[in-house]
Amino acid sequence: MEAIERVKAARAKGRPTGTDFIHKIFTDFTELHGDRRYGDDKAVVSGIARLIDMPVTVIALERGHDTTDKIKRNFGCAHPEGYRKALRQMKLAEKFHRPVVCFIDTSGAYCGKSAEERGQGEAIAENLMEMMTLKTPIISILIGEGGSGGALGLAVADEVWMLENAVYSVISPEGCASILWKDPSKSAEAAECLKLTAGDLLSLRVIERVFKEPGEDFTELYETIRTELYSTIQKNKALPTEQLLDHRYHRFRRIGWDGR
């Protein structure tokens, strides 16, 4: 499949969103709202849930289902308070020794006036720093679109996984095409150049694992993810904290630098 087809699939109407993954994979989900600083960003859904028998913190970027929901969620584009809400949950997870699972699906962090006024750059930057040394296991899964810094703000993890039709990119294909060729309609070529598919990212060693998508019915996929999350988190929980954090640091430290 061509890269642009993956981009279309990742954005497709009806594709399961962050909250679907939360409800299908975990039990006892208890949503916790707000960043305790400014407000409650509904593009980020967060709380505590049970993974089989293990309490975990779950955080999802949620783009919304129907039109009303999408508007409420700002189409999955978080404001700074969304990243700060996520960080608050992660700090709670650290305190109570709960692992963190993040689901990522966003075209990017919100590029609006309000977001700039409240420090979008600072909010993402702080997450990158804090996640790097958060003393509990973190797994991030790209389930749809992984748009640039807005996706990375929840993706500093021990392992990063992707669904077969998810994409992860430094810039949208449309944005890239308008910069490169002054023509956003050349997004198919741009998508190819950007190396944004799960397969590309696996070979660039930016992600650890790709999950095959079984078509429209994700039931089986949810089960697989549940099992894989459980065993990977158990394995990471068993590591001494220093080793876990060292691994996380070097996981990012070597990217783009292997063998150079």
């Binding site: 930057a125 990158l128 720093m129 804090e130 790097m132 040394t133 640039s148 810094g149 990375l152 993706a155 500093v156 992860y168 990119s169 430094v170 810039i171 890239c176 910069i179 490169l180 150049c193 950007l194 190396k195 944004l196 590309d200 990212l201 660039l204 930016v206 996380r248 640091y249 990012f252 430290r253 990217i255 783009g256």
Partner: peptide
């Protein structure tokens, strides 16, 4: 910002540099 011509690898530099800043800060 991140250098588009290096694709996802430049995005990852944000995490990499932030990790180094954090270790220095700690």
């Amino acid at each position: 910002g991140a250098r588009m011509q290096e694709g996802i690898l430049s995005l990852m530099q944000m995490a990499k540099t932030s990790g180094a800043v954090k270790r220095h800060s700690d």
